[in-house]
Design a protein around this nucleic acid. Structure first.
Lengths: 117, 117
DNA sequence: ACTAATATTCTATATTTCTGCAAATATAGA
DNA sequence: TCTATATTTGCAGAAATATAGAATATTAGT
């Protein structure tokens, strides 16, 4: 059993953090590079955002725990925090599919289901 | 096959719309009342938000297509737009679980799987 | 210690967002 | 049409956010 976050304000803050195109692209990029992540310069090159602007965005994402950072010499390597993303996804899934029958699970998860691991 | 939206700015805007506690609570409330939805007065009573403030929030949610509205006499009935929510959930699921193996589907969907419909 | 490379912090500006009062609009009933 | 109810719109101030140039900090190599 995991600890239950269930603080609605936390989810709102995380949605807000992903609520700009720049930051959503950053998350997308870090997920595509998961689990290695990327150093700031690589992100900057890919997204073409000025370094200070990018730094602010990364700071915001880190504040909401959506990314993690580790130093490697002069580089800082950012990675997507899958645990936080899992919580967000679970929250949304629960609200839409579990607590209420608004959406059917099958509408989200494509049925590969060949005794899928 | 459905039409693929895939406009990242749209998802950012939807996350942003759900990115305040007030509006996230509204969505939660409308989902819990789905598919009947609720009229503005009921939402207001439940959440204790001044009418004009609530109206602005509803307007924002409607602009991002997260809710739909229908008039019933002097009342306006708001409902969660499940199609938009489905798109958001699919987007997040795809980014985290499909395009990248960052999260395992089983971490999101609890395995009821008794030949689940 | 000096230099180069990487990234953050400082500072400033522009823009957007949130909030809620007051006025306006919309609908229905008498 | 007058009245009552429901909700939105207009307006405005305060607060938060986004952006980015310039200065600073951190680390490593020589």
């Amino acid at each position: 059993m995991q600890k239950a976050p269930e603080r609605i304000a936390t989810y709102a803050d995380r949605f807000s953090a992903m609520g700009t195109e720049a930051r959503l692209r950053i998350m997308q990029l870090l997920l595509s590079a998961h689990p290695e992540g990327m150093v700031v310069g690589e992100i900057q090159e890919e997204l073409e955002i000025p370094n200070s602007t990018l730094s602010h965005h990364l700071d915001k994402l880190r504040n909401e725990d959506l990314v993690q950072v580790n130093r490697e010499g002069t580089f800082l390597r950012y990675t997507a925090n899958t645990e936080a993303l899992q919580e967000v996804l679970q929250f949304l899934y629960a609200e839409c599919c579990t607590r209420n029958k608004a959406l059917k699970p099958r509408d989200i998860v494509q049925i590969t289901d060949r005794r899928t691991q």
